[in-house]
Amino acid sequence: MAVLNCQEIKHRIRDEQDYDKKLLVTPVLCEDQIGPASVDIRLGSSIVVSRKTYVAALDVTKQQTEPEVEKRLYERIRLRYFKPFVLHPNEVILAGMFEYLSLPDDLFATVASKSSWGRLGLVIATASIVQPGFRGSLTLELCNLGESPITLYPGLLIGQLVFYDVKGPRGERYGGKYSCPTEAEPPSFAGTSADEEMAFWREGPRQV
């Protein structure tokens, strides 16, 4: 596995014509966004904040209640560009990435904070792996671990993507729960195999 450098990233973005094989990060607003071995990403305008009022606890193993819990627990908010919003200490929000990402089958990516923000205590991603074949705007988990509130604006460069070659024959494309998301998405634990897995751990082995 090798990390793509600047030239390789530009080549994969620019020269491949087939959208299924192309690396796509769009829009890149300036070429400076592409660093020596990464692409800087910006904060988008869609965020999800949690409402703690109505839900005693979130038991993700109970699938049938998930859509209802999503409505009760999360609020989708759209931010305006050029207007501030404040992330308070210990607050966690979900925020959509400004760019739209499309990974071909032979690349996977990781997301990391920009170091300056990290030093302020801002963590932008805890689930930082992006699978080959993913298409969409990533949902970042923003958390202020610092002591002071942090003012943010949609469009600010807050993170970076690092791309890696995936060895071996091309596998299946990403077919996960989040299909072409363009906004911040609340968590979803749905899916047949996930349902069975959750049920096992909630109910224990079934008697035959």
């Binding site: 530009k10 973005i13 620019r14 959208y19 299924d20 796509l24 769009t26 829009p27 890149v28 607003l29 300036c30 070429e31 592409i34 739209y100 499309s102 298409r135 072409c180 363009t182």
Partner: peptide
């Protein structure tokens, strides 16, 4: 349309003009 058909936002028109190859 090609972008939409591939699940990609219709935000830019690709260009080979100098300085626009990456940005569109």
């Amino acid at each position: 349309l090609v972008r939409l058909a591939h699940g990609i936002p219709p935000n830019i028109v690709p260009s080979n003009a100098p300085g626009k190859e990456l940005l569109g």
